Amino acid sequence: MAGIKDVAAHAGVSVATVSRVLNDSPRVSAETREKVVTAMRALHYTPNGVARSLRTEATRTLGLIIGDILNPFFAAMARAVEDEARAAGYTVVIGNADERPEQQDHYVRTLLEQRVDGLLICPTAEATPLVEDCVRYGSPLVFLDRTLPGMDVPAVRADGTAAIHDLVRHIQRLGHRRVAFISGPELLSTGRERTRAFLDAMRECGLDVRDEYLEAGDFQAASGRAIAARFLDLPEPPEVIFAGDNLMALGALDEIRARGLRIPDDVALASFDDVAWFVHLDPPITAITQPAEELGRRAVRVLLERVERRPVESVVLPARLVIRRSCGETES
Rank of each mutant, 00 (worst) to 15 (best):
D6V: 08
A11K: 04
S14L: 05
S14R: 06
S14D: 03
A16Q: 07
V18M: 05
S25G: 04
A30W: 10
E34G: 06
R41T: 12
H44Y: 06
Y45G: 00
T46Q: 10
N48H: 14
N48E: 15
T61R: 15
N71K: 10
A80R: 12
V81P: 01
A88K: 14
V92F: 11
I94E: 03
N96W: 13
R100D: 15
P101Q: 03
D105T: 12
T110C: 05
L112D: 09
E113P: 01
T124K: 04
A125R: 12
E132W: 03
G138H: 00
V142R: 04
R146W: 01
P149L: 05
V156P: 00
G160F: 08
A163Q: 01
H165F: 12
H165A: 15
L174N: 12
H176I: 09
R177M: 03
A180V: 08
F181T: 11
P185H: 02
T190I: 13
G191S: 11
E193H: 14
A197K: 07
A201E: 07
D208H: 13
D211L: 06
A216V: 00
G217N: 07
F219K: 10
Q220H: 14
A221T: 05
S223W: 00
R225H: 10
A229Q: 15
E236V: 12
L247Y: 07
R257Y: 11
G260D: 08
V267A: 01
W277M: 13
F278M: 14
V279A: 15
I285P: 13
A287G: 13
Q290C: 06
P291W: 10
A292P: 10
A292N: 09
V300R: 10
V302W: 10
R310V: 01
P311K: 07
S314L: 00
P318V: 10
G328D: 04
G328E: 05
